[in-house]
C-alpha cells in the first residue's frame, strides 16, 4: 500500500497528489511514468511522474473516467493499492538552443519536468500552454518561475489568446529562427497538429504517446504504436517519440477501442458502484 501524503485540487477536473513510493523515487527521471491501481479490483493506469524527491512521487491527473475518478475520491492519509515505476525511457534531453514546449490541458504536468531539464541544460525555453478556459490552465506559477517566455491560449478567450495552441506555435516558428526544437504533450489530436506545424517549418519535434497500457514492462503489447511503419511498445521504447514518425490516427483508434466498456464503468460509478 502506498500512502497519499499530499493532495491539492487544481481545478474541477485535475488533482495533484504526492505519494510515498521510495522504490519509484529512487531512479525517477523526467519523462518517466508510473502505473497505479487504486484498489485491488482496479485497472492499472499510467500517469507521468510530475516531480519527485527521494521518497515521494508527484502525479497530476485529469479525472477522465472511472479509474481517475476513483483516485480522486482518495484523500490525504489514504492509500492506493499499487504504485510501480519508474517506467519508460527517460526523456532524451537534446542539445538545443531554444526549445518550445507546447502543452494542452493536463499535458502541462508531464511537460514540466522535461522543460525544466532543458532549462537546466542551458536551452532557452518558451512555453505555450492551452486549455478550455482560465481555470484549466494548470501549473502556471511553477512554469513562470523558470521559462523565458510564456504564451497562454484558451478556447473561450477567458485568459491569454483565444484559440488553439497551434496558432501561437505557427507564429513563433515563423518569426523566431533561434527555435530549433519543439516538444508537444497533450491530447493526441493536439500533438498531431503540432507535429504538422513543426514539420511545415522544418523543426524537430518530440511527442509523448499515451496508448492504453497494462503491465508497462513490455510483456503484453497492448501499448504498441506505429512509428515510421514499424511497431514499438510505448511502455519500454517510449513514451516519447519523434513526432514526424508517429501514426497518430492509428493511436487515436486504438485508444478508443474500449469506449463502450469505459462508459459502462463510469455509469456504475455515478450510480454508486
Amino acid at each position: 500500500m502506498y500512502k497519499i501524503v499530499d493532495k491539492k485540487v487544481l481545478n474541477d477536473d485535475i488533482d495533484f497528489m504526492r505519494i510515498e513510493a521510495p522504490l519509484v523515487a529512487r531512479n525517477a527521471k523526467p519523462g518517466h511514468f508510473i502505473i497505479l491501481r487504486v484498489d485491488d479490483e482496479g485497472e492499472r493506469i499510467p500517469l507521468t511522474i510530475a516531480d519527485n524527491d527521494e521518497k515521494h512521487v508527484d502525479i497530476i491527473y485529469q479525472k477522465m473516467g472511472y479509474s481517475t475518478k476513483m483516485l480522486g475520491e482518495k484523500q490525504i492519509g489514504d492509500h492506493v493499492a499499487d504504485f510501480v515505476g519508474p517506467l519508460g525511457k527517460a526523456a532524451h534531453i537534446r542539445d538545443k538552443q531554444h526549445v518550445v514546449g507546447v502543452a494542452g490541458g493536463v499535458g502541462a504536468a508531464p511537460l514540466l519536468p522535461q522543460l525544466k531539464a532543458y532549462k537546466k541544460a542551458g536551452s532557452k525555453v518558451t512555453l505555450i500552454l492551452g486549455a478550455r478556459n482560465k481555470d484549466f490552465l494548470i501549473l502556471r506559477d511553477e512554469y513562470e518561475q523558470f521559462v523565458d517566455e510564456v504564451i497562454y491560449t484558451t478556447d473561450d478567450g477567458s485568459f491569454g489568446e483565444k484559440g488553439l495552441v497551434t496558432d501561437p506555435l505557427e507564429r513563433k516558428l515563423k518569426d523566431d529562427e533561434t527555435i530549433d526544437h519543439v516538444i508537444a504533450i497533450g491530447p493526441v489530436i493536439m500533438m498531431k497538429f503540432c507535429t504538422q506545424t513543426a514539420v511545415k517549418h522544418g523543426r524537430s519535434i518530440d511527442v509523448s504517446l499515451n496508448p492504453i497500457m497494462i503491465d508497462g514492462t513490455g510483456m503484453c503489447g497492448n501499448c504498441r504504436v506505429n512509428i515510421a511503419g514499424k511497431t514499438f511498445f510505448a511502455c519500454i521504447d517510449g513514451p516519447d517519440f519523434e513526432g514526424h514518425e508517429v501514426d497518430f490516427d492509428g493511436l487515436m483508434k486504438r485508444q478508443s477501442y474500449y469506449k463502450d466498456e469505459e462508459h459502462q464503468c463510469y455509469i456504475r460509478l455515478k450510480d454508486g458502484r
Binding site: 479490483e41 482496479g42 485497472e43 492499472r44 472511472y66 479509474s67 497494462i214 503491465d215 510483456m219 503484453c220 503489447g221 497492448n222 474500449y258 466498456e261 469505459e262 459502462q264 464503468c265 456504475r268
Partner: peptide, 26 residues
C-alpha cells in the same frame, strides 16, 4: 491481441468479472 495481453487481462486483471473488476475485455 497478443496472447499475453489477452491472458493478462483475464487472469491477472480478472476482466472476466468486468465491470466488478475495472479492466475490460472483448
Amino acid at each position: 491481441y497478443f496472447a499475453n495481453e489477452f491472458l493478462t487481462r483475464v487472469n491477472l486483471m480478472r476482466s472476466n468479472t468486468f465491470p466488478s473488476h475495472a479492466t475490460p475485455i472483448k
